[in-house]
Amino acid sequence: MKLHRLRDAARPAIALQLDGQGIVAQQGDTLLTALLAGGAGHLRRSDFGDESRAGFCLMGACQDCWVTVEGLGRVRACATPAGPGMVVHRG
């Protein structure tokens, strides 16, 4: 899944890491926006099977956007602001 930036797309940049790869995001992004606009494609795998997932509700209800942030633990990407230097792992 690729999020496309349509508005306010010229905010100051922040750099994150996802599974060892660099992601450039923008201030004000949620972690979900940062990752999916930055080309992550998906955020986790289903607990029961191998399917890829990338969140569904964007409002903290479906719990299908969990990622792990070093120092924070498992968080919902849609409900967590992206921060500079965050080291993120899928699932």
């Binding site: 899944m1 690729k2 999020l3 496309h4 930036r5 349509l6 508005r7 306010d8 797309a9 004000g28 992004d29 949620t30 926006t33 606009a37 494609g41 998906h42 955020l43 890829s52 997932r53 990338a54 969140g55 569904f56 509700c57 964007l58 409002m59």
Partner: peptide
């Protein structure tokens, strides 16, 4: 990935300035 609720599509646009596609 890429399938969302209608509300989510709106949240992406309104609060993040992004389209789901």
């Amino acid at each position: 990935p890429g399938v969302t609720s209608l509300g989510a599509a709106q949240i992406a646009l309104k609060s993040q300035g992004c389209a789901i596609g």
